[in-house]
């Protein structure tokens, strides 16, 4: 009965609350809006719509990846034939093989890297617009300490990640590719060790980042959530200590604000999540397709190709994997933060 009353009160007073406080998610970027439904149904239906729209645009990426794969198989075949011919210098063949594979793969890798950078920047920019709305709505519900802590943490980690990716990780990827090509051409233990160090640094830094971020968010949520719950309890005690009629009016108003802010925050959060997925999904799938087809190509080439050629193709596959991991980390950061802000005080 109480729930029905609150629902009716919300229906009556929502126009009143809406005048004073409005929490709507920022508009999705034009590129992402193409993959989002025009009218929102349920969360799962909207998500499924985004997935279907993204998949329907994958055809050109698959065709391009297959074309590159066939070229690589042709190079590996040619190199293996040349190797069997007597009188051919192995060093020259190795050099030519490295240069050929490098030329075939460097341009698509560059295109996909730039796609990855653009997607990271778009997600970061959208996060900068969404997070203040969610934090503000959460503060309106009484979770002042938690919303400030979550907003600060997410902004800090998002900035560090965004700058780290564009200024450090991406150049590191280019350096890694240079070392891989040089190692394939020249074959040096030092370059091999450097290559493995660069790979280790990139992998470990992404892993460490996500662990630190998740740990910080968990601890912050518990500590500040306890403080906010105490503050809300204290406010309730003040209300209950007031004159009965006044206390009831204030209590009803407080409940209306909580429910209204909660409804608006949830709606903004759901739209924000769908938008983040719409920005992230198609580039992720485009790079993922290239990654899978390159992996398959390396497996096929390992049957007849030289070790150096196959290793170089595998190194480029590793780079695709790094870009996928980077995109995944940025998307995960935003989704975790949005869900934490939607969750509110426990």
């Amino acid at each position: 009965m109480r729930k029905i009353f609150i629902f009716l009160l919300v229906l009556v007073l929502l126009p009143v609350t809406a005048k004073a406080m409005e929490y709507t998610a920022p508009q999705a970027p034009l590129e992402a809006e193409r993959y989002m439904p025009e009218e929102s149904a349920s969360f799962s239906e909207d998500l499924w719509y985004v997935i279907r729209s993204s998949i329907s645009h994958l055809q050109p990426s698959i065709a391009e990846a297959v074309r590159i794969s066939l070229s690589l198989i042709a190079v590996a075949l040619l190199v293996s034939v040349l190797e069997t011919m007597s009188g051919m210098s192995k060093n020259i063949i190795q050099l030519v093989s490295a240069i050929s594979v490098g030329i075939l793969l460097i341009q698509p890798s560059n295109t996909l890297l730039r796609l990855g950078i653009r997607t990271v920047q778009e997600m970061s920019e959208y996060g900068k617009l969404l997070l203040p709305v969610m934090a503000s709505a959460m503060a309106a519900q009484g979770a002042v300490t938690t919303s400030a802590a979550l907003y600060t943490a997410t902004t800090l980690f998002s900035t560090v990640l965004s700058v780290g990716i564009t200024k450090l990780l991406i150049p590191l990827i280019y350096i890694y590719l240079t070392i891989c090509i040089a190692n394939s051409a020249v074959g040096s233990d030092m370059l091999k060790r450097l290559q493995s160090t660069a790979k280790g640094v990139m992998t470990s830094s992404l892993k460490a980042f996500i662990y630190i971020f998740s740990g910080y968010l968990t601890i912050t949520g518990v500590v500040s959530g306890t403080a906010d719950a105490s503050a809300v309890k204290a406010t309730k005690m003040i209300i209950s200590g007031a004159v009965p009629v006044v206390g009831k009016i204030i209590s009803d108003a407080s409940e209306t604000i909580l429910v209204g802010a909660g409804v608006m925050k949830s709606a903004a959060g759901v739209y924000g999540i769908i938008t983040i997925v719409a920005i992230f999904l198609l580039p992720f799938m485009q790079i993922g397709i290239q990654y899978l087809i390159l992996k398959l190509t390396a497996t096929v080439c390992s049957i007849f190709g030289s070790k150096a050629t196959v290793n170089l193709i595998a190194d480029f596959t590793t780079v695709m994997g790094f870009i996928l991991a980077t995109l995944g980390v940025v998307c995960l950061l935003l989704l975790i933060s949005t869900v934490c802000l939607m969750k509110g005080i426990t």
Binding site: L13, V16, T17, K19, A20, M21, P132, A135, S136, A137, M138, A139, A140, Q141, G142, V144, S147, A148, Y151, T152, T155, L156, I249, I250, D252, A253, S254, T256, I257, G260, A261
Partner: peptide
């Protein structure tokens, strides 16, 4: 960063306070 977080949180608190005041006044 702290200043920006405070501004965002204050915005939420102030708008909720204003909305609650409006409801209490009307009721």
């Amino acid at each position: 960063l702290d200043i920006r977080a405070d501004a965002v949180v204050s915005d939420g608190v102030n708008s909720s306070h204003a909305a609650m005041a409006e409801i209490i006044k009307e009721n």
